[in-house]
Write a protein that binds this DNA or RNA. Sequence first.
RNA 1: GGCGGAAUAGCAAAGUGGCUAUGCAGUGGAUUGCAAAUCCAUCUACCUCGGUUCGACUCCGGGUUCCGCCUCCA
Length: 455
Amino acid sequence: MSLQIYNTEKRQKETFVPIKPNQVGMYVCGITVYDLCHIGHARVMVVFDMVVRHLRALGYEVNYVRNITDIDDKIIKRALEKGESIQALTSRMIDEMHADEDAMNVLRPDIEPKATEYMETIKQMIETLVAKGFAYPAKNGDVYFKVKSFEQYGRLSGKNIDDLEAGARVDVNEIKQDPMDFVLWKASKENEPAWESAWGAGRPGWHIECSAMATQCLGNHFDIHGGGMDLSFPHHENEIAQSECATGEQYVNTWMHCGFVRIDDEKMSKSLNNFFTIREVLKAFHPEVVRYFLLASHYRSPVNYSQENLESAKASVGRLYSALEGIVPAEAEKESAFEGAFMTVMNDDFNTPKAMAVLFDLAKEVNKTKSPALAGLLIKLANQIGLLEEEATAFFKSQPSTSELSDEDIEQLIVARKKARANKDFARSDDIRERLGEQGIELLDSASGTTWRRV
RNA sequence: GGCGGAAUAGCAAAGUGGCUAUGCAGUGGAUUGCAAAUCCAUCUACCUCGGUUCGACUCCGGGUUCCGCCUCCA
């Protein structure tokens, strides 16, 4: 079965056909780097990481571009508050973002363009839009896109311009010719970073940078564009308008949008101040547990962040790893029905919950047969969604823990307990088990000896 | 007000016009010095009202509730 992807623009699944055979150009809207990434950002990173991994597993050569917005109002404001230069703030936050990504085992994009490094492309695109009559400079030095000049405006989000105006949630601004028009270039104020342009000193509006970077990196017309659901309007709608008016070509074939992470069934966001940063979460849960949690729901559905749901994810990942304990995996079994099932459900719009069900079925088979080839297959398939990347024992030992016991302390106690058991001194043996249990250390006896895990 | 999405067992979460999703939790059994893991068995479902159908959780229509976007937002 060929790959089907739900295209937000068409509101249905479509068979994926790349523009160039075997190659995929994919652009994902990345982070505005003014603060630490939160778990909602992690979802976008993990979801598109999973998408890229699967596309590559299908044999596609993927060019994955994810931008960094390193100039915008929030950045300017935050830098001022911190008494830090904009450059210092953004480069610090970019480092932090990379650290989070690495911790989450998210593969880096192939290209990570920064808005400030694409200024010439951005200005050229705006000039083209002005020259073609799709945009106009205003008297204050701003440049606006003339929304009504693009007949297909609203095509992605299914909105029509008249309804939007009736809603009247757009900025009232006498400088614009029409309230719907959005800014391409902002004249700079005192003490703001600025780039020289034909319209005076200023900086780009948010939407134009993505159009410029995407087309520069992937061409005027490319395969997949993704991002969080909140970006579909107005950001992606505006990207389509700008790009297609500037280039005269179709911008994107497939639009993918991933759902939100919620807290208590409310959207997690900076403005609601109900967010958890990635590193906070990783203090309490292993990265693969977080990844499992994020992929245990379909990428378009909302997920609810809660202690219970993360605990449950932890138990589930533990089951997969348990199957691998005590087995030396061999080369993955070939032409397995499990692999066929896995690929089939992943090809159905990246159905990771179903893919996980296949992994659990396979884990059960591994538990029964202890087959090294099936264990190898389990690892191979799980790796395709970024799971089971560790050795089982290492995974269980590396769970975030409040215990102050070092690995050495634990090993010593296990040796002591072994002696006690050999002497049939079970009272002492159980005492050690209990003491370790209080420290969040669980002992597992088996024919081959005693292993332990942090719980 | 406009546009879009969703309602599934104790919890989480897929899916299908008739055939066990899956994980966690629960129950019974096997196994175990204890404990865990594992295996076998098993209890809990498809918001509501109509319609289509031999048969609907699944399709169609009405209703209810929830969520998102329409303003910066992943």
